[in-house]
């Protein structure tokens, strides 16, 4: 039995745990380049799953398929038991409200202040009208990421770490049940990277979120992961806890862990 088949077998639905994301045989290609080759994955409720992989290995494509930003060429993606491909626009919108997506750049709306960025999903998505409640939620979420003082700043006035935290706050303000982090620590200094990784853990504990963290930052994987999957050339080649993989003799796995 190959390593990939072993991982697929391990990924078979577990009856005792509530699975929030279930991916089976996911395929995605751009032109003649196959980016994802029969990927299978499941995310348990409350779990932090780190997907490790080199640049261009298909990590970001994977989470973009989960929220319907990209349409898979084959296989199925089920979130909360519903197949994403078969959803209507309304169903997809409702699903996206339950999923927070942190982009690599933070993706703050640069024509709005931090406050307006936080208010945007509350007024446009949750359709809240009560300004008192909106202010309360914005203040609380900014406090949770340590950005209370930056509430009236423009995104261009924020540092890279602050932009990431503000982006994180904007996704958290609607209380998502699943968080998808796309390279949350890329481009940050080691201290700020550690702060973001610890923030991911505190969000998991405080908000009871389930998360997929796409990264190639081993320190982030060590701090934030309950389980790690290694994605190599569009296929999962290894699965385990961080400590299990750290002890692995596999050359491919060791190539990630030798750098720490």
């Amino acid at each position: 039995m190959t390593e990939q088949e072993t991982i697929k077998k391990k990924q078979a639905p577990k009856s005792q745990k509530e699975v929030v994301i279930l991916i089976r045989d996911l395929k995605k290609a751009f032109g003649d380049k196959e980016v994802l080759k029969d990927i299978s994955l499941e995310l348990d409720k409350g779990e932090n799953l780190v997907v490790l992989g080199r640049s261009g290995s298909g990590k970001s494509v994977l989470i973009q398929c989960i929220v319907g930003l990209l349409k898979p060429d084959g296989g199925s993606v089920k979130v909360f038991g519903e197949d994403v491909a078969g959803m209507s626009d309304k169903q997809l919108k409702d699903l996206r409200i339950r999923i927070g997506f942190l982009f690599q750049s933070g993706a703050l709306y640069d024509s709005m202040t931090v406050r307006e960025n936080m208010e945007f999903p509350l007024t446009r998505v949750l359709k809240l009208k009560d300004q008192g409640e909106i202010d309360k939620r914005v203040a609380a979420v900014l406090e949770s990421v340590g950005l209370s003082d930056a509430i009236d700043k423009m995104p261009s006035d924020l540092s890279g770490g602050m932009r990431k935290r503000a982006g994180l706050a904007r996704t958290l303000v609607v209380d998502p049940e699943i968080m998808l982090y796309d390279e949350p620590t890329t481009g940050l200094d080691p201290i700020t990277s550690r702060e973001i990784s610890e923030l991911i853990i505190s969000i998991q504990k405080k908000n009871k979120t389930s998360s997929i963290i796409i990264t190639h930052d081993m320190e982030c994987a060590r701090i934030a992961s309950d389980r790690v999957l290694i994605l190599t050339d569009g296929e999962f080649t290894k699965e385990g806890t961080f400590d299990e993989l750290l002890k692995s003799k596999d050359k491919n796995v060791a190539s990630y862990f030798n750098i720490i």
Partner: peptide, 9 residues
């Protein structure tokens, strides 16, 4: 994309 995945239009 951020606007789209947040459920806003």
């Amino acid at each position: 994309d951020a606007m789209d995945v947040s459920g806003a239009n």
